[in-house]
Design a protein around this nucleic acid. Structure first.
Lengths: 356, 356
DNA sequence: ATGAAAGCGCTAACAG
DNA sequence: CTGTTAGCGCTTTCAT
């Protein structure tokens, strides 16, 4: 727009009557420079409006001071929160962040990784859509930090994730403590096969001396609609109805609330519903969704911290596991027949509809 | 990790026994190359795993093939959706996107703009936190496209926004058509002063021959909590109660639903509530939020398209205005006394509370 | 304390 | 059709 091109280090040198080496020295702050010279150079920098060219800097030093972030979907609040954390940390460390969405598509992910390699980013944060193909990540020169539970599939890279096992315990113990003995699970189907969510839930359920048969499971796709459908399927099963539903993410839990309402069930009086995520939208439902909050933002921050450590060569490969937190709102209560049941633990029978 | 550095164009040249110029030619596809030579070069590229260095490319050509996006908050679903659109379009055009959140902070925005200048991005998409300081945008060499209604404050730059006037008409006509004659407005307070939302609403209201006094207005800050508080203030006003509330964004409308519930009002039987945004979370409330959907994703796409045009030098400065769309869910219905009112159009008086 | 020179990897004249 | 040469803007030896 302005017509004249951006000033370079040479323009500054000319303006202040020194060599570009000297300018570079005051700019970088390394090496001794006469105070009067420094003053003149700084003045010239201001007057000319000089801004360091990061392309040239990166080419010369081999550090672009740019990081890459590859997530499934930027418009999904879970990933948006995480991205925000990564961006804030990168910014605090004077790095810029290149962000890509893969939509769980291997081919798109491959292209993004290529773009990042071409941009010569100093490091990559990624939630891999592809699990089988480790070579895709290995062939990348830059250090990689894996986001989420797939970190365990790539032990060679550092990773940051929430403590799903602990979160599941938190949720189940909350439910069990209230008297629930028959809980439906809505789990997401990962490209990693069955998510670890189910495994942890079953393990803890049995650890508490409860029957795995009373933990019926339906699969959904992490969306409201699929969660609603899965809940409806759950209700359609034969035998006594569950007194609570525990979904692997908040969107599916919202779907469960919708499905319960459609089935004429009052939540939490007739049925308790619990989510896992902690995204803000969970507080919009009626009743507000009780959930296990995952530290999304902090995972983004921590992953970035680990990545910068890996770039600096300091620090070993570490797998950061951040704790979850119970967020009580109002979609969970004692089951309708809690008093009865706690008296006779084996009486898991009929669920009576209570008038709201 | 791998030990050996990334191969350069020279490695490829050596490997295929030609000069680096020839390699560059087959890589860029411009200029004639013997088919056999081309084959050998392509083979060498594959074998070596060569990837073009965008830093060097950008330094030489003056095109970094990177764009910058500066928005208030990446974890706000409105901006996340827009960012997604921008990223998808950038990706389709073989560009990478550097994303920053400003949190409506002028100082942060200034730093982001500086980072983008240093990265020598080819162009910038921005929703300016700062309005008074046009120079901040002017001093940037790269083309700029402004996001949102502040586009009108910067006529010199292309812009993309939703058609707020049309959206407001859509909403008000919907409400008026149903029989509402006393509508409360919850508006957001911009750093741009009063948002254009109020102006448009009042104008259209009067255009329909209605009394501006029956359009009481409260200010909030685009959040659920502030929307809830504003609604409560609205309810606390003297005189007859509004039969409907129209909020300038969906989060505040969600707050209004919460406030109505807290006040013991049934929505939509006692009071209708309408939002403006269309974010997914609006469908989580009970009742589902009726709203005016803004084309968030498309704004991101369109803005990026305009930016690329500006970069190529083709195309004039254009202000793209994308239409909104009415999304009917269930938070809006006829007012309690609609039958009465439509019979006597001038009787805009008392609102009788109807038992739900 | 300062400067000269080399070179990061690439493209773009300009020759042949 | 192919190669030689000269930078893009910066940092980094190595002299002085």
């Amino acid at each position: 727009l302005n017509g004249k091109r951006q000033p370079t280090i040479i323009d500054v040198a000319r303006l202040s009557g020194v060599s570009k080496t000297t300018v570079a020295r005051v700019l970088s702050g390394v090496g001794a420079v006469h105070s009067e010279t420094r003053r003149r150079v700084e003045e010239a920098v201001r007057d000319s409006g000089y801004e360091r060219n990061h392309l040239a800097f990166g080419l010369r030093t081999g550090r672009s001071r740019t990081l890459g972030l590859v997530i499934p979907d930027l418009s999904n609040p879970y990933w948006a929160d995480l991205a925000r954390g990564a961006q804030d940390k990168a910014e605090a460390e004077k790095r810029s962040l290149l962000i890509f969405s893969s939509d769980w598509d291997t081919e798109r992910e491959r292209r993004h990784l290529q773009a990042l390699r071409q941009a010569r980013v100093d490091g990559i944060l990624i939630n891999p859509a592809v699990t089988d193909d480790v070579t895709l990540l290995r062939q990348t020169e830059a250090p990689v930090v894996v986001l989420g539970s797939s970190g365990e599939v790539f032990p060679e890279f550092s990773s940051a994730r929430s403590d799903v096992a602990q979160g599941v315990r938190l949720a189940l113990d909350h439910l069990i403590g209230l008297g629930h003995r028959h809980v439906g699970l809505i789990v997401g189907r990962d490209r990693l096969g069955r998510s670890r969510f189910v495994a942890e839930a079953r393990a803890h359920w049995q650890r508490q001396g409860l029957d795995a048969a009373l933990l019926p499971t339906e699969e959904a796709k992490y969306t409201v609609d699929s969660g609603q459908a899965a809940t409806t399927r759950l209700f359609g099963r034969e035998g006594p109805r569950v007194t609570a539903i525990f979904a692997a993410n908040d969107l599916m839990a919202v779907g469960a609330i919708l499905a319960a309402r459609a089935a004429g069930l009052a939540c939490p009086n007739d049925i308790s519903i619990m989510g896992m995520d902690g995204v803000e939208a969970g507080s919009f439902t009626d009743p507000g969704l009780t959930t296990v909050d995952k530290p999304r933002y902090d995972i983004g921050v921590e992953a970035t911290r680990l990545l910068l450590e890996a770039i600096d060569g300091t620090g070993e490969t570490v797998h950061a596991v951040l704790p979850c937190r119970l967020v009580e709102r109002s979609s969970v209560a004692a089951p309708p027949s809690a008093a009865l049941r706690s008296a006779r633990p084996s009486a898991l029978g009929s669920v009576r509809k209570k008038s709201a």
